[in-house]
Design a protein around this nucleic acid. Sequence first.
DNA 1: CTGCAGCGTACCGGTGAGCGGAACAACCGT
DNA 2: ACGGTTGTTCCGCTCACCGGTACGCTGCAG
Lengths: 262, 262
Amino acid sequence: MTSGTSSSPPHLDTVLGKAVALLRAFHVDDTALSLAELVRRTGLPKATAHRVAGDLVEHRLLDRTRHGYRLSGGLFELGMRAAPERSLLELAMPFLQDLYERTHETVHLGVQDGVEVVYVAKIGGHRQARSPSRTGGRMPMHCTAIGKVLLAYASDDVRTAVLGSELERRTPHTVVAPGLLRRQLTRVLETGVAFEREESTPGLLCVAAPVLDPDGRTAVAAISITGPVGRFRPESHQTAVRAAATSLASTLGRRGRTARQP
Amino acid sequence: MTSGTSSSPPHLDTVLGKAVALLRAFHVDDTALSLAELVRRTGLPKATAHRVAGDLVEHRLLDRTRHGYRLSGGLFELGMRAAPERSLLELAMPFLQDLYERTHETVHLGVQDGVEVVYVAKIGGHRQARSPSRTGGRMPMHCTAIGKVLLAYASDDVRTAVLGSELERRTPHTVVAPGLLRRQLTRVLETGVAFEREESTPGLLCVAAPVLDPDGRTAVAAISITGPVGRFRPESHQTAVRAAATSLASTLGRRGRTARQP
DNA sequence: CTGCAGCGTACCGGTGAGCGGAACAACCGT
DNA sequence: ACGGTTGTTCCGCTCACCGGTACGCTGCAG
């Protein structure tokens, strides 16, 4: 995670490729997929998909249910052992906790992967705002507060890649003009916070702040608070998010450094 | 997850088998493993391990770092899509949140897998008790509060399997006498809560309550509160955990049923 | 009831992807 | 300089994988 601009489609000419293609066929909100659906999504021959899926079940990466296949608990377990995300998550949790307790609004922790945001944690109460984000889910960078923060501190490659490509319109408020977005990013670097006002989802507002590397140049993650239009005033929470983010950053700095890939 | 008594060692005579063997070679607290270490743990020939690990990197299930291989963020993402754990987690979060806010002690959510407990969530503040549990980690059933709860409501097979095998002594307080444990389990069914007093880790106390199926016969998960000897009185939290657990149970019951494997 | 469409499952012979021993290269610490 | 450990590459043999084809099952419409 964190780097890599291209998400190449897995080679389907190797067992492993087919296997991960099957696993990746599941989206965040799928619960169970039928064999036929898997065939449709992966493009694998039916017989092959059947065999490989069967193997995956044997290896406890998939579960077989009445309604089809689903990602198994074993996979959840493995995923939680992923070093970078997990240690970040464990260290961040208390700070997110504080933030939630102070505001009682939905709190997110996100990292950059390629040109998208991946949410590592999301905590909220019973009456939390109906946001489309989910832990382990992805969102574009240009229309979320966390995304804008990460984009502002991202490498030039990524930033130009995003600003160069078309900015998908998600709502009437989505910023689709590269110029405007670029100006917002500059402002993020100056103020240390980013805002989002119904740009990804109607009715949702958001503030985010970066968790910076010890060197202060790049962001390893970002924290945000989300709330509904009406009662929620993003501006009044910016110091809280910023404080949480910098505290987390210094904790990360103190603790063993999270090794980066070369 | 939830069923299955045997954890068969993966067949190393198939690509997929080798791949999952490599992935499973990582334990909860490993950050990075060298190729040599992977060879040692899996028993694969060096050349083979090298090749397959390389393939896994290409498929973004492993990361290559200066210090060796580690589970990648892509795997974290996949794991978070595992249907049963994720939906349980999402629905449970608000209740765990409440519990934490009320007590400010470490809160756990765990499910049963075979003869062990798998922790699905763990939330706590800055001053949380130093417990060895980690999200995605495993613990034996006989020496943890969550484990005892799940064991009390588990199938006869599992219960006799656990009570039949040797109960590993973890601390001087671990219950290693099957008779005593069985009596405790009966008591759990009567009272709806289980206690643990320094049975898995010195200095830690714990209360747990079951999240029951709508039918009330089996437990789909368990919630616990953990605190240090001294300030923490497990008894005084039993109603809180029980309340949280039953509220969660009824929410689960109301929401779409979590399909069970046949 | 019949036919059809979509699904899951099973078979099986050909073949190339995967295999792993061995040899090499790049490091250590001594 | 030198044993020991680790990471990497090579290459020919072979068996695990492949997927077209065929079959049984369900549910739905005519």
